[in-house]
Computed example of a mutant assay.
Amino acid sequence: MEYIAVIIILFISIVLYFRVADKYNIIDRPNHRSAHTQITLRGGGIIFPIAFIVFCLFHVRDAVDHYWPFGLGLLAICAISFIDDIRNLSNKIRLSVHFVSVILLLYFTDAFNLMPFWVWPVMFVLIIGTLNAYNFMDGINGMTGLYSLVTLSSLLYINKEVIMFTDEAFIIYPLLACLVFLFFNFRKKAKCFAGDVGSMGIAFWVIALITLLIMKTQDYKYILLLSIYGMEVVLTIIERIILRENIFEAHRRHLYQLFANEKKVSHLVISFMYAFFQSIINIFLICSELPLWMLILIIFIPAGGVYLGLKWSLKKQYGL
């Protein structure tokens, strides 16, 4: 009954946000680097911080006693991202807020006590890099929602069947938010886009869950729950460095962008395939007892080879 109420609340919240966004012209205008061609409401990903607020309402004691560091970090990063959706902010302001939010995330997951101090800077780089990877990959209908749904579903299964690392509701709430968001976004003509508030918000929640799992098991293989995003972003950054491009500027070099913009493949098909391949990796990851280094070799060598082969073929075909 609780989750039915949550879905209803989230539906009402996002519909109300649509009215606000329409009134105040919070929209996404396509440009020459965009994979979409129509003006669309931006910031639909505000549903993710709203989902946490609803979580707090249903779990007041847990929120006050345990989840407040996560909540402060999530709301901070979502607030600065939402402002950035409306008007561009300087990198210094955004990165400062990201830095504080990551501190709160690591405090929430008890990483400062469970990990040696020399690992802390590595964690900061990995988490901020993953947050931005999520943002880079949020470019077509359904991508962020479906990919996050797969990862959250995998985490829910691990929590129920492998090892309990957090309260089940703490996974289900963002999962329900993804479903509601996808109802409006997983369409040929999307009603809304996630915006930075959405990509950063759900990324922060997913990263927090994966970090909790790693702290509980002391097994770093679970970072591979985001391996498709990680491989795509790292290889694209390497490509842009080789081409001497500014890696912080918007571009159309991701594989999904080539399929969407040059090949004209449906956004929904592309998003589904990314989610599907990540789900295959997650099943293998959960069932396997292999060490991290071996999993990396088994997953990234064939996946990287396929990725580079497809990209080379498309670039050759379209003279890019």
Rank of each mutant, 00 (worst) to 15 (best):
E2L: 13
Y3G: 05
V6S: 09
F11K: 01
I12K: 04
Y17P: 01
R19V: 12
V20D: 12
H36D: 07
T37K: 15
T37Y: 10
Q38D: 13
R42I: 02
V54P: 05
C56F: 09
V60A: 11
D65E: 15
Y67N: 11
L74F: 04
L75G: 04
A76G: 14
C78L: 03
A79V: 13
D85S: 06
I93N: 07
I93R: 11
R94C: 09
R94Y: 07
H98R: 00
I103G: 10
L105W: 06
L106K: 03
L106Q: 10
L106A: 06
T109C: 14
T109N: 06
F112T: 05
N113D: 14
L114Y: 12
P116M: 09
W118C: 01
M123I: 08
F124C: 04
L126S: 12
G129D: 08
T130C: 14
F136H: 09
I140R: 04
G142D: 04
G145V: 01
V150F: 13
V150S: 10
I158W: 08
M164G: 11
F165P: 05
A169I: 00
I172R: 03
P174G: 05
L176T: 01
F184L: 05
N185G: 03
R187T: 00
K191L: 12
F193T: 01
F193D: 00
S199L: 08
A203M: 05
F204G: 01
W205M: 11
V206C: 07
I210P: 06
L212A: 03
L212V: 02
L213H: 02
L213N: 01
M215H: 04
K221M: 07
Y222R: 10
L225Q: 07
L226F: 12
I228M: 14
M231G: 00
M231I: 15
L235E: 13
R253N: 13
R253C: 00
H254C: 07
N261C: 13
F272V: 12
A275F: 11
F276R: 01
F277D: 00
I280S: 03
N282K: 01
I286W: 08
P291N: 10
L295S: 01
I298F: 13
I301D: 04
P302I: 09
Y307A: 04
L308I: 15
